[in-house]
Amino acid sequence: MDPILLHGTLHATIYEVDRLHVEGGGPKLFRKLMENIEETVGLGKGTPKIYATIDLEKARVGRTRIIENEPNNPRWYESFHIYCAHTAADIVVTVKDDNPIGATLIGRAYVPVQELLDGEEVDRWVEILDKDKNPIHKGSKIHVKFQFFDVTRDRNWARGIRGPKFPGVPYTFFSQRQGCRVSLYQDAHIPDNFVPKIPLSGGKNYEPHRCWEDVFDAITNAKHFIYITGWSVYTEITLVRDSRRQKPGGDITLGELLKKKA
């Protein structure tokens, strides 16, 4: 089946697996091998740690908690509200065992995206298949529920934030706040002649700004606090880089600027 663009909200629930720990192979055969390995290298007995993930092609969009010591019938009963703009042929639910040598694949279940396009709820037991798409040990199944709502069904779609009655983005941790500002950047630093034509609502075009220079201005003009978030901060970069657009104090590195403000 050809991939289909899912642009909207996917409501997903992962309930349980009917039977995993059965005679004749699969997880039990793997677990016996794991016990031998763990005893040999001194890791002790392995503890079954079963979890499930939700994938749209190569994008992992959901993961359950780990269920320990329940290899027969792991029960999660977890729901997800997934905002997606992904191209996929199937929603893939993967069941894995998290063990000392890394997560081990137990099997995958596939629900065709085509079945969700009409907005109807899909609630069923889906067969779990191995990596070659053959049923695993005597037809184990996983109970899942999916329902997709196309983005055009959102009453606020393409309207922007209008007035005080806008409810904010649903299913988020924090409610909508007043006085916030978000700046969109094409890149951290761009030359003057690099202005792509990106149309916005209201007949306007996006006007790119220089992120690093705005960061420099924000730090320089800060009065009370400077909050920096990110995976890491490299203090040796220079924020003002264009000799034709020099700023007072812009010839120092980010680290020197922060020390100066402190």
Rank of each mutant, 00 (worst) to 15 (best):
G179P: 02
Y83C: 03
P199Q: 02
C180G: 05
R124K: 15
V144N: 00
F149C: 10
K145S: 11
V126W: 06
T152S: 14
G119F: 12
K204T: 05
V111F: 08
R153Q: 15
D192L: 10
T152I: 11
D154R: 01
G202I: 10
F225E: 11
G102E: 09
D187P: 00
F173W: 11
V93C: 15
L129M: 05
E120C: 03
W212I: 05
G202R: 10
V195G: 00
N193L: 10
A103M: 04
V195Q: 13
F166V: 02
H189S: 10
Y171D: 14
F194G: 00
W157P: 03
D187Y: 07
D150R: 03
E115F: 08
S183N: 12
P170M: 08
K165T: 15
I91T: 02
N156K: 01
K204H: 09
L105S: 06
D90R: 12
G139F: 01
G179I: 05
Y227P: 01
Y185L: 13
G179W: 09
I142A: 02
I161E: 14
V151A: 03
G168R: 04
K96L: 15
Q178A: 09
P100Q: 05
Y206H: 13
K138Y: 15
R177T: 07
A103R: 06
D214A: 08
